[in-house]
Design a protein around this nucleic acid. Structure first.
Lengths: 239, 239
DNA sequence: TTATTTATATGATATAAATCAGATTTTCTA
DNA sequence: TAGAAAATCTGATTTATATCATATAAATAA
């Protein structure tokens, strides 16, 4: 039996699904998920879940942007990553049978589906290809985190900021007139949280990058003018 | 059919297995693994695998200690973690269907079983409880890495070193006379690789900790004299 | 709109930690 | 066992970046 609430369009019709781990789940499974999911609209600033609390299901982002972060003992936020359309949230905590290891907050208005724990888990167990895909995603994430840790300890703030800008360009970049606008609204403080540094340092370095014609600043938005230059800075090819 | 090479004792009899992800695999599965695994002795300094190469199976540590590390572009090693008896290596790369994201080197003479890719994967698919356990382990690892990243960006070297010493004490500590000897041989350079700092900084801070009666130094071995003091340093409870 | 708060920006200063250099000790090896 | 090489240690110096302080601009609320 398949219910279909007005505000709850079926997963089969979801345009974000093709970007997600649900992408090639068989029709039958999709219907089960669809039947039990709950699509909720979130406004900027809302918290999806808090570190230390118990996961009751997983989130799948239909639209919007979410920051995943840990709050350090000095009160500063370390942003682990930004999640968008098609991304799953909270499945690591669920599979790890642990409380959330991080918190998540909406940074651009979002529509997010919630799929209850048992629906998600039984779907995994009933479909080993899906399970494998989820495991693949977890594994990939580990490699990404290893890279981030290595960068954090071995690279300078300047290098890391340049690298983060390039990455943001890859994910949120809108091309135009030979330059690339990073189309996501991040405060300087949040940018600092991604890089893992002080807000003032980010502001200072952005000014420097601007002076060096690597970027342009349009309010909160950053426009990348010279990807090659940033790439040179981000690595160790001179600098 | 179960072969049993002289140097290749069956997994059913392996005393390290109870610490591993194989711990409650059913007898039938154990036999398959046992039949296809290969136990190899490794000497200190040997490389198990290199970052960027293709995983052909997984490693399960029977004895010894292995460091898992990434080499940064400045040539320095960031040690991701140390692995010991019962730990699995290389399964994330296998499940992620990617090349190794890190390298691994023996730091204390080790006996390590190699289980070929298809044997491991078919075992996973045939036993969903095992698969779930592996997924749980991957998920846990992600949380650990998030914590490490946050520490790396938000804590001082002094705090991180104190924290690393406590962790090493937990894993390798041998109690005796109110103090705890860290019974694993790490060079100062490797300790620096764990903390994510320069070798000289580690040496200097160890001297300082010694002066402050937090630890004692016996050649390469470190003896923790004051866990409480180190804990105070490692966190932000004054310092 | 104006007032108030919050975010961004820039300068001055302090400091942790890297780097460079040299001495001593330990480990390796021929 | 001697000699060479590597690791540890300590000191001096430099540098990147955090912190503190204050000004300006932008966002929000009254």
């Amino acid at each position: 039996m398949m219910t279909n609430h007005p505000s709850n369009t079926p997963c089969a019709a979801c345009t974000s699904r093709k970007f997600s781990l649900f992408s090639d789940l068989p029709e039958s499974q999709i219907c089960v998920i669809s039947d039990h999911k709950n699509l909720i609209s979130h406004r900027k600033g809302q918290i999806l879940y808090y570190e230390g609390t118990k996961p009751l299901g997983i989130f799948c982002i239909n639209s919007g942007v979410v920051k995943i972060y840990k709050t350090a003992s000095n009160g500063k936020e370390q942003i682990i990553h930004l999640a968008q359309k098609g991304d799953f949230l909270g499945y690591a905590a669920l599979l790890g049978e642990e409380n959330y290891s991080n918190s998540s907050m909406i940074i651009e208005d979002a529509k997010i589906c919630f799929v209850p724990k048992d629906v998600f888990l039984s779907s995994l167990l009933r479909n080993s290809e899906f399970f494998r895909k989820v495991a693949k995603s977890l594994s990939h994430e580990i490699g990404v985190m290893e890279e981030k840790l290595t960068n954090a300890t071995q690279k300078s703030i300047r290098e890391r900021l340049a690298y983060v800008l390039l990455q943001l360009g890859n994910t949120y970049g809108v091309e135009g007139g030979g330059s690339q606008k990073i189309d996501v609204t991040l405060s300087r403080e949040e940018l600092a949280g991604i890089v893992g540094t002080a807000t003032e340092s980010v502001i200072r370095l952005l000014s420097e990058f601007k002076k060096d014609k690597l970027i342009e600043l349009e309010g909160k938005k950053i426009i990348i003018k010279d990807r090659r230059g940033l790439a040179r800075l981000s690595d160790f090819y001179g600098g």
